[in-house]
């Protein structure tokens, strides 16, 4: 999570207008989800991976590692689609007869599973593209332009900031504990972890009160207003995004499969 954030700030597409990147990622997700052609999914995956690795400069090993993160969820979901149980006589590619039922894999089932797998991976790669190239702050600025309720945006921005404060606090407590043999055995580990949790809560509460005092000291009166840097949209990028998504859409709704 921390590394994704680091790349978001240091990648080569950092200075592309965030609205372009958000729009591209979201439209492509929509096309990918709406399409039923396997080729579209594969194209989306390749396109997003190519952009992230070659244009944004995200190291390939890191990108592959990220792509493995949703694998366990996907595997479980895909398996349930691929494997079917039925009492009727279907043409099973591979089957196990248990009483009057067959547990096995059918041709269409396998096809559907593959589609689902690729579709999900395609959607995930769109979101990875967005989160690897666009800092949260800039995504928030785009959301703000869309006129979502300020409360929602402020909450997101504070949550984002405090994830890091919380992680840092937790890490400090953990280091302090382990340097005093807090994690020497299983028993002490459980004890230390419990204390870490409890302390983290108390500390966070105290911290939030201090933050409020600090905000008040700067004339805070309910709204977190901050400056945004003005940035022009690039016509060239918009054109490329439109072209890419139109091609994907065309492939997606192509009748002859």
């Amino acid at each position: 999570m921390l590394s994704i954030d680091r790349y978001a700030y240091s990648n080569k597409l950092r200075h592309v207008h965030p609205a372009e990147k958000c729009g591209f990622a979201l439209i492509t997700v929509a096309v990918c989800l709406a399409s039923s052609n396997r080729l579209t999914f594969i194209l989306v995956i390749l396109l997003m991976a190519g952009l992230a690795v070659f244009r944004a400069g995200i190291p390939l090993p890191f990108y592959l590692k990220l792509m493995c993160v949703p694998m366990s969820f996907l595997a479980v979901g895909v398996l349930t689609v691929a494997i079917s149980i039925t009492g009727e006589n279907h043409p099973f590619l591979w089957g196990l007869k248990i009483g009057g039922y067959t547990l096995g894999v059918t041709g269409p089932g396998l096809q559907a599973a593959a589609d689902l797998f690729l579709k999900s991976l395609g959607a995930v790669s769109c979101l990875y593209f967005l989160s690897l190239t666009t800092p949260v702050v800039e995504i928030l600025a785009v959301i703000k332009k869309l006129r979502l309720p300020p409360l929602f945006i402020e909450l997101m921005s504070l949550v984002y900031r405090f994830i890091f404060v919380l992680l840092e606090t937790a890490q400090k407590i953990q280091v302090a504990q382990s340097s005093r043999w807090g994690y020497a055995s299983l028993k002490t580990s459980f004890h230390s972890l419990g204390q870490l949790g409890a302390n983290l809560f108390v500390k966070s509460y105290h911290h939030s009160q201090m933050i409020h005092a600090a905000l008040s000291a700067r004339c805070y009166s309910g709204d977190l207003n901050v400056l945004e840097e003005p940035r022009p949209l690039s016509k060239r990028n918009l054109g490329m995004i439109a072209a890419a998504d139109l091609v994907l859409l065309a492939v997606g709704i192509w009748p002859g499969k």
Binding site: V137, R161, H207, M210, I211, A214, L215, L224
Partner: peptide
């Protein structure tokens, strides 16, 4: 402690 004061995600903001 600057961490109690800095709330925003970017320095400019």
């Amino acid at each position: 402690d600057p961490d109690t004061q800095l709330f925003s995600a970017s320095v400019l903001q």
